[in-house]
Amino acid sequence: MTPIQLAEALDLKIISRGDGDERTADGVFCCDLLSIVMGKAKAGAVWITVMCNINTIAVAVLADVSCVIISEGYAVDEDMVKKAEEQGVCLLQSSLPTFELGLAIHNLLQL
């Protein structure tokens, strides 16, 4: 399933499409500390976080995750959206708490 299909299935807000139509979401990783994401997230994972700044996008590119979902309805600022668009990162947003979102994705992807 692509990140965009996942967004449609779970009614997530699409903030930046990026390469979300081309990637395959094949795992879930939840964490707000950037170095832990770089150390442990697998390429292709869906990364769920409340950390909203341009470093989040830089780390998403480095870790090569398939998309970033901002949970808990945290606000995404203009700089972050711009950076996501520039870098072709699929950026999604949801008002759901991180765990509920992760569980829903886990079930949807039948992991």
């Binding site: 707000d32 500390l33 950037l34 170095s35 832990i36 976080t49 700044n53 470093n55």
Partner: peptide, 15 residues
Amino acid sequence: SLGFGAGMGLSNMKK
């Protein structure tokens, strides 16, 4: 508050 400070950077560099 920006997400740094996990204390994982140097271990990632080594890994």
